[in-house]
């Protein structure tokens, strides 16, 4: 009899069988590399304005110049370089927003799961209210309070993502607490904190990982939407959404300033969604056990 494969190995085997998921993973890795080495990769600065080359079309079009592969924007900045630098912001927003909401969400979920009664009701009612509002409306509301800006947009998105993690964690806690091995370790004298971190958290890791991956795509999408509405990152920050917003008036004359930032958003969001779906499918049989 051969030994069963390591769980991570098995997970990877399941994951890698899904072509879409692997594509997503490759794109995400590419994005991370772009973001890390943006200064090296980008041919130009993200904010330098080449006054002699405003609204220059992409290199392959008539009037284009190989200096600016994807053309320049209305004030003569290189679109490609801005996109590359923009990947930093999108990933940063994703990372910060997901970490914040994940941390807080897990904490709230654990609290609600372990201390039933009034604590639970209060927390979960609040989460339900937040879930009842569509994410962009809630984010807009939060920005209305905090004021527009990149940092505030990140907070807003964290708050929007929060209830998903809190609910998942609470459900996992309640599910795990009903199991015999938890009762057994309780009887054996394990404290609440120990139970939380040794028994319950590892068992709800799988759905949380999936949700966090999908949270990345939601964060990137919502941040871009806020940027587009002028409620997120402010110009001249090379954030994809705000790049689109400032290109709006040139839609009739310069298709490239409108097309490429959106394509960047679509591709990154799609990549995270593909990866999240792949992870869910790969982890699912284990969730059912």
């Amino acid at each position: 009899m051969s030994t069963p494969p390591h769980p991570l190995r098995e997970l990877w085997d399941d994951f890698s069988r899904n072509r879409g998921a692997v594509t997503g993973l490759v794109i995400v890795c590419g994005l991370v590399l772009l973001a890390l080495f943006a200064d090296v990769i980008a041919p130009h600065s993200a904010i330098e304005q080449y006054r002699d080359a405003t609204l220059m079309p992409p290199a392959w079009q008539e009037g284009g110049n190989s200096r600016f592969l994807l053309g320049t924007d209305p004030v003569g900045r290189d679109v490609l370089s801005r996109l590359i630098h923009g990947s930093r912001l999108s990933l940063l927003i994703g990372t910060v927003a997901v970490s914040l909401s994940l941390g807080l969400g897990i904490a709230l979920g654990l609290l609600a799961g372990f201390f039933r009664g009034i604590t639970e009701i209060a927390i979960m009612r609040l989460m339900d209210i937040m879930l009842a509002l569509p994410s962009l409306l809630l984010a807009v509301a939060v920005v209305a309070i905090l004021g527009p800006g990149l940092i505030n947009a990140m907070y807003a998105i964290s708050i929007v993502l929060l209830p998903h993690y809190a609910r998942l964690t609470r459900a996992a806690v309640i599910g795990e607490m009903a199991k015999d091995y938890v009762s057994a370790s309780r009887i054996a004298g394990a404290g609440t904190l120990r139970l939380m971190f040794n028994c319950v958290l590892p068992n709800c890791a799988a759905p949380l990982i999936v949700q966090a991956t999908l949270g990345f795509s939601a964060a990137i999408l919502d941040a871009a939407a806020l940027g587009f509405l002028g409620l997120g990152a402010q110009p001249p920050t090379p954030e994809w959404g705000s790049m689109l917003a400032s290109a709006l008036e040139f839609i009739q004359s310069a298709w490239w300033v409108v097309t490429f930032p959106g394509l960047a958003i679509l591709i990154s969001v799609l990549a995270f969604n593909l990866m999240g779906d792949g992870l869910r499918d790969a982890l699912d049989p284990k969730l059912k056990q």
Partner: peptide, 22 residues
């Protein structure tokens, strides 16, 4: 459907304008 689901609709709207209106 997955593409539509991942679509930044503000950009999608611009593309539609670009194609059908402009």
């Amino acid at each position: 459907s997955l593409t539509g689901y991942s679509m930044p609709i503000f950009w999608w709207a611009l593309l539609l304008i670009l194609l059908f209106s402009v």
